[in-house]
Amino acid sequence: MSRLKSVLAYTAAVLALLIALATFTGMDSFGRKLVSVTGIKVSPWMIGGEVVSVIEHEGYQTVIHRPVFDGLFSERKKGMLQIDWTPQQGLPARVDELIDFDRDGKDDFHIVLNPESNKAGLEAINPRVVSIEGCYTLKDGRAARLSLYHD
């Protein structure tokens, strides 16, 4: 019995070497497999929710992300909405927009952005819209995050 245990133990020790080799040789394919099997994604709190609509303007576009209320167990009462304006080159000196983020046909807020100073002003129309969390520089454009209440 102890001999069998030793044989198994030494086999496992040699297996550690094979695992080390497999880790490096198969890193990319294992990584892809891991992502596809588990279905993991990067948290929308980090990079914004999925894009739900794009409004085309002359020279630039407004990208509206899904409002994010995701919590650990259930949705949160307070969430975040990200709006991007790209590309940087096409942005006017003053972006002035009425946005309907929930696509119910009614405008939800009025936002004015100065892309140069990266400062924005907000006028909430829908009571769910609370305030501007911050304005950020993107690789090729500007973004603003707004805090929202859940319905």
Partner: peptide, 29 residues
């Protein structure tokens, strides 16, 4: 089923999936 880190899942240097595989392999070995 989300990773609370502002990194890339599969693309670029030190992406999330490859670091997880490296960690799993080294933890086992």
């Amino acid at each position: 089923r989300t990773i609370i880190f502002p990194g890339s899942l599969l693309e670029g240097f030190a992406n999330i999936a490859s670091m997880l595989i490296l960690w799993l392999g080294a933890s086992l070995a």
